[in-house]
Amino acid sequence: MSTVIQFENVHFKYPEDTRESLNGLNLEIREGSFTAVLGRNGSGKSTLAKHMNGILVPTEGRVLVAGIDTADEDRLLDLRRQVGLVFQNPDNQIVANVVEDDVAFAPENLGLPPAEIRRRVDGALQLVGMYELRLHAPHLLSGGQKQRVAIAGVLAMGPRVLVLDEPTAMLDPQGRREVLTTVTRLCREQGMTVVLVTHHMDECVGADRLLVLDRGQIALDGTPAEIFSQVERMRALGLDVPETTQLLYELRQEGLDVPLDALDVDSCAGAIAAALKR
């Protein structure tokens, strides 16, 4: 697998801030991988996401996306079409009054021929399961549906990477499930590279790789199982671990021989049952 996004010693400071939001960050994202980014508010995770399509550019260091330097203004469109960015509030990223017109917005901006736009819009809506509702008004949809329209809206650009900045923060559990299932399927079935920024640790469980951000730097980097088993370290970073890990961790302290890396509910239950039967 090749590298699709590369951060080289990236520093970034907002003009109004005194502290750097990104503080010498190095990172490589592999094509086709599912990367989750976890961090508390103000850890720099949103800033990181906005660097991936050149909405923000580093004050020092550089970001390369498919070989394009994000600071290269001549290739801005080329860059943006490769990286689809989805934001927290679904209401603030839907521009049109009809679902399919909204999804058409990006390919229209790219000046594609009408038939090609139609093909992409229908394809993107089918991928997120919103094709049936293509003629609906966005404001009448549920939060999860709106967010799926937003995802379709960037998929229609034909991006290589899908970056989602806390896409579930404003959704109810139902909507959260819809979005997470959609994103996971896009990665596993379509081979889309996914970067999911979140503060729900449960949403990271299915990722290939988990990055924990703290004060503009990568504090932890590994598989979710590796990282969540560092219960104390996570606590020190102001984050929780999933209930499963927490339970296994405490049972271990009580002398029970259970592994720490059984993250989902069923494997956790299986591990505990096995330890008890032994």
Binding site: T244, L247, A269, A273, L276
Partner: peptide, 29 residues
């Protein structure tokens, strides 16, 4: 509760309603 439900499916007996971390831990111990 979700973990307790999965444990019960694995054939483990746990007391009554489990809905907090402390209850689950106590039950398992």
């Amino acid at each position: 509760t979700a973990i307790a439900m999965a444990l019960r499916r694995q054939g483990l007996r746990l007391p009554g309603a489990v809905y907090t971390h402390a209850q689950l831990k106590a039950g398992l111990l």
